[in-house]
Amino acid sequence: MRISMVLVLSVALLFVGAHAAQSEEITLYSARAQSLVGPLVRAFEQESGIQVRVRYGANAQLVGQIMEEGLRSPADLFWGYENSLSALAKAGLLKELPDDILALARPAYRPQDAMWVPTSIRVRTLAYSPDRVNQQDLPGTVMDLADPRWEARVGWAPTNAGFQTFVTGLRLILGEEETLTWLEKMRANRTKPYGNNTALIQALAAGEIDVALVNHYYLFRFLEADPDFPVAQTLFPEGDPGNLLLAAGMGLLSSSSAAEPAQEFIEYLLRQEGQAYFTRETYEFPAADHAQPVTSVAEIADDAARLAPPVHLGELSDLGGTLDLLRRAGVL
């Protein structure tokens, strides 16, 4: 009789305990795919006891949704990219982050307005077909791709956020007029538009184009599926605008009523375990100072840090100006 009492009591206690641990709950809208970050979210749940309810979706859809929800949004956090985070900050939908969280990210990667924090870093590269382009024939700078020698051989993705941020960087480095001229020359050179980075890499493998402007991590996934995949990638020489660094990052929504556990999640991503996950599983670079990339991406991460142009990630927020320019050049 006693034993059963004890059993019932302990089960009840367990139940209460489990319930208490789960009572903290945050809602995350993630433009980063479940296939990439799902395991990391689950690891955080186990370690912290905080339950994370995630809506996974495409960048534009989730931003539209948050803007439509406004201050009624049930979401606490948004996980996206520098362009979407800047747009949300501009719309007044993000809360300023505390200094101790911002301080976890490398100073060079922090946005000036302190409204969001980078969680991982990526770099723009030149993907190419080693069968059709010799290494010594690779362009000396991204500007060279407007030369007649590259006519109808280059692919780009004008609707893609990474590409648009690259153009924003170009504007900062070259100025409006020169950027416009380059875009027009590229278009006259019959540069082929594709929908996204994946489509560009597939077009390279298919033989439709010889070089393409992409984000660096997609090729790693193709190579993981097939080590003989016929595409390679490289960075341009030091300081070239073609080597621009981009960020994936997280912002705390103004509507959040659970700022504390939400910040705990951001912190987790910027600590050792989270940062190691990105370099190991998503082939990205760490955004935090202390973290070191693992071997598979160490080389390109080092090169990217060394060769990137002197543009501050926080300055890349003028999306409207970039879209304007792309329209004027007839690219969009």
């Binding site: 809602t27 995350l28 795919a33 479940q34 296939s35 990439l36 309810r53 995630v54 809506r55 996974y56 495409a58 049930p74 980075n197 994946t198 890499i201 997609y218 996934r221 193709f222």
Partner: peptide
């Protein structure tokens, strides 16, 4: 969809959007 809800189509999207 409620957060945490994933249909077959959203899974396909989640993987193909990342070239998986």
């Amino acid at each position: 969809a409620p957060p945490g809800f994933s249909t077959l189509a959203t899974q396909v999207f989640s993987y193909t959007s990342e070239a998986l």
